[in-house]
């Protein structure tokens, strides 16, 4: 089975949202930005249904959600509170914590991994972007 056949559902949804799809190599690459985190979640749900433990090693699904600076983001940690750090890196001291489910403000993006946020107590610092989801 080719990558295009195996991941047809994933590719179809990705193309419907104007993402870049490249199945010419041995790894299917899906890249781009979507406007809604729902689409990103759907893509990951499809990928996980096809390959439950991500063991095929044949996909790179690098889809980011479009998030505007100054907009609101939700804390989507698994269970723990999210560390807010002084600088962009886990080696930086923790200056605060945000509760799971909190909706806080995105000030700016330091890079793809670290975003500067302001929590509801007015505290500012950097959080790991994977645990933040834009709120529409």
């Amino acid at each position: 089975m080719t990558l295009a056949e195996k991941y047809k559902e994933l590719i179809d949804l990705a193309k419907a949202h104007q993402l870049n799809v490249d199945d010419s190599g041995k790894v299917l690459r899906v890249e781009g930005t979507v406007t809604s985190s729902n689409v990103k979640d759907q893509l990951w749900a499809i990928y996980q249904r096809i390959d439950p433990h991500f063991k095929s090693n044949d996909v790179i699904l690098n889809v980011k959600t479009n998030v505007t600076e100054g907009g609101k983001v939700k804390v989507v940690t698994m269970q723990s509170r999210l560390n807010i750090r002084k600088g962009p890196g886990t080696d930086q001291p923790i200056v605060g914590k945000a509760e799971k489910g909190d909706i806080i403000t995105l000030i700016s993006k330091a890079n793809d991994q670290w975003w500067l946020v302001r929590d509801n107590d007015g505290e500012e610092g950097y959080c790991y972007s994977q645990y933040l989801e834009p709120v529409q």
Binding site: V27, W44, I60
Partner: peptide, 19 residues
């Protein structure tokens, strides 16, 4: 925890992830 980890690693845009 696996999906969270995979999302973080995919976001680094590697050539491939061998799990």
């Amino acid at each position: 925890e696996l999906p969270t980890l995979m999302q973080k690693l995919n976001a680094l845009n590697p050539v491939q992830i061998v799990n």
